[in-house]
């Protein structure tokens, strides 16, 4: 019986990793679901939903060559895969400011307290090494509107950060 797995690969970023991994996955008869690759601090990382009918040991073995070649760290876990049920975000949040510890914890705690379900998050450290800036982009769903939620987020982030909260007005045509 086919089973979904979450395959996570992390390593030094080099050209050709995605192509090599997906080729091996295709060759061993597995099927790809949703996936996200991101480069974090120069590191390659990818999470792939993989559907496979055989022994997961065989799946790992199939990838062993490419894992070794690119010195990747692999994690494979069985998941209950669910496709065709995307949740739609209704709010988009941008937070930026001088890089300091605690920004993410403060803002996300306030989001959680207000029932904000984070569906997508990217954070980056930009600027220069002497003056880093922190940039966070979040999308999610919350039953509160901008007028209610924004003041609460601003109150939660005690120090100087810029917070913008916008509605995502989805248009289905």
């Amino acid at each position: 019986m086919k089973q979904w797995y979450m395959l996570t690969l992390v390593g030094e970023d080099r050209a050709g990793i995605v192509a090599a991994v997906t080729r091996e996955l295709f060759n061993c008869g597995s099927n790809l679901g949703e996936a996200a690759m991101v480069r974090l601090g120069g590191n390659f990382s990818v999470m792939l939903m993989v559907e496979y009918g055989g022994d997961p040991e065989l799946l790992q073995q199939a990838l062993s060559g490419v894992i070794e070649r690119f010195s990747l760290n692999l994690h494979l876990m069985q998941i209950s895969g669910e496709l065709h049920h995307h949740l739609e975000p209704n709010l988009q949040l941008t937070v930026y400011g001088a890089d300091r510890t605690g920004i993410v914890a403060e803002v996300t705690a306030a989001l959680a307290e207000n029932g904000f379900h984070i569906l997508d998050m990217r954070t980056d450290v930009a600027g220069s090494s002497s003056e880093p800036i922190y940039v966070m982009q979040i999308e999610g769903f919350c039953s509160l509107g901008v007028a209610e939620l924004l003041p609460r987020l601003k109150a939660a982030a005690a120090q100087q950060v810029e917070i913008a909260l916008r509605e995502i007005d989805l248009m289905i045509g």
């Binding site: 065709h84 995307h86 989805l170 289905i172 045509g173």
Partner: peptide, 13 residues
């Protein structure tokens, strides 16, 4: 920039 979906493309925006 705006977020769009389509009746002819279900489950994606």
């Amino acid at each position: 920039v705006g977020r769009e979906g389509c009746m002819s493309v279900p489950d994606y925006t």
